[in-house]
Amino acid sequence: MNDQMVIDKAKASLGEKALDITNPAPRRIFIKLKVEDLLTAVGWLKTEMGFTHLATISGVDLGQTFELLYHFANNYTCVNLRTEIPRDQPRLPSICSLIPGAILYERELQDMFGIIVENIPDGRTLLLPDGWPEGNYPLRKDWKYERPPEVIPGGKK
């Protein structure tokens, strides 16, 4: 299985759904999708192409939209599904029903970008502390960290 075979099959199976397929480097394939087609594409990758290993999910804040990349790998090549969701409606379907190992990455996305992952089996916060204020999502570009003043009890005022 080489890159060209994967691209050909993607064109044949996904057809119109694959908005854009690029192959910028050997063993790196980027497929752009609409968010509605994400589950179909993941299912196709897993069952027909044997891409069972989800390396991680990367989120990027592009300003108006969030770009999400699902990095899949198998023994021959690495396929990256790219999708975009609008910033004011950050909703994403969960792929945990297909790939159970995605749970931690999806929880991380919820924490860091405030993306609402629908149908996630376990949606608690993963990384942020429990007292973290609502509506603060650290990896959004407009979030700035301000160090809270530390008060040492009994120290100098």
Partner: peptide, 23 residues
């Protein structure tokens, strides 16, 4: 495979996956 384990954990379950070889 389903839980996306990596490295020696994955290889000890009989899946020959190593980035050095695959990629």
């Amino acid at each position: 495979i389903a839980l996306c384990a990596v490295g020696p954990t994955l290889r000890a379950s009989g899946v020959a996956m190593d980035v050095r070889k695959d990629d």
